[in-house]
């Protein structure tokens, strides 16, 4: 009874008023749509036809027995893992280099950050233009150098398209890793390195014991956020290739889009996106386990 009264006292009206608008909007714009998406995933909802009915698990059965779904799933994993690894490696290397050079670090940083500001539609136009097999810079350069006998269209060639979209995604995403890792590197106290050197540690040892240990929290958080972003990404890939050629770059979001708006089957599309969300939840829980373990070790 007593604890109840104190908790009522703590019920702080002004505080609630501060957070109320944000809470309302998040509930209305995120929670409610998710619930209604779950509902539609059990129905035959169509984009155009007004009538639909409850179909139980039919949509899920249809999706989970569809080989196209598994191809899109495999493409999603490949696209996400390879993009993230590439972005991390390039961003990390650039951040270490920027942190080491004595001068012009701000200048290089400003240049290197430029891809991050590109909207997806402009990224797509720019690289389609550079890769264009008639006017494009790269195919013409390769032909002129004698590397290729004729101009190749990187976004249309089945053996090259995945490498090409990965390259663009790494080009776009590496600056975000670089900037965040760099500002984490700056928080490492310099005297730790001096102490390690006095103790006779090799540069490699102090890199692992000091640098990595200090910034792994930031890297972990970046990995979670960017994995989710890349896995969920629709516009960048769709605008570059439209999921083609012959579905080679169709990931789950593009597959859901084609099902929902191409085939008008919103119910099935909902089922696909719900499966996508469940998969992300599992992956993120694994990430969180690791982050919590690191947090405990750092204490």
């Amino acid at each position: 009874m007593n604890s109840l009264r104190t908790s009522f006292k703590r019920w702080n009206l002004t505080g609630l008023l501060f957070v109320l608008p944000a809470v309302l909007i998040v509930v209305l714009l995120l929670i409610y749509p998710i619930l209604s998406s779950m509902y539609y995933s059990f129905t035959s909802k169509n984009l155009i036809r007004p009538h639909y009915q409850w179909v139980w698990l039919d949509n899920f059965r249809y999706v989970l027995t569809n080989p196209e779904f598994y191809r899109a799933f495999a493409n999603s994993i490949k696209w996400t893992v390879l993009s993230i690894v590439g972005q991390l490696l390039v961003g990390f290397a650039a951040a270490l280099a920027l942190n080491k050079i004595p001068r012009f670090s701000g200048f290089f940083r400003t240049l290197l950050i430029i891809p991050w500001a590109f909207p997806a539609i402009v990224i797509a136009f720019t690289w389609k233009w550079i890769f264009n097999d008639v006017y494009g810079f790269l195919p013409n350069l390769l032909t002129q150098l004698g590397i290729t006998s004729h101009n190749v269209n990187l976004f249309a060639e089945p053996s090259l398209v995945f490498g090409a979209v990965l390259f663009v995604n790494i080009w776009f995403g590496a600056p975000l890793f670089m900037v965040n890792i760099l500002s984490a590197l700056k928080t490492i106290p310099a005297d730790q390195y001096e102490a390690a050197m006095m103790d006779g540690a090799t540069p490699w040892q102090s890199f692992w014991a000091i640098t990595i240990r200090h910034i792994r929290g930031v890297i972990g958080l970046l990995l979670v956020l960017r994995t989710i972003w890349v896995f969920n990404n629709f516009d960048l890939l769709y605008l570059m290739t439209g999921g083609g050629p012959s579905d080679l770059t169709t990931t789950l979001p593009i597959f859901a889009y084609k099902t929902g708006w191409g085939l008008k089957q919103l119910g099935v599309a909902s089922a696909i996106t719900i499966i996508l969300l469940l998969f992300l939840l599992v992956v993120c829980m694994l990430y969180f386990r690791l982050l919590n373990k690191w947090e405990k070790e750092d204490r």
Partner: peptide, 17 residues
């Protein structure tokens, strides 16, 4: 991160309806 996880393509279905 929890709110970030909701894919835009998932929200797109209920939003368009």
């Amino acid at each position: 991160i929890t709110t970030y996880m909701f894919p835009p393509i998932l929200l797109a279905v209920p939003y368009s309806i």
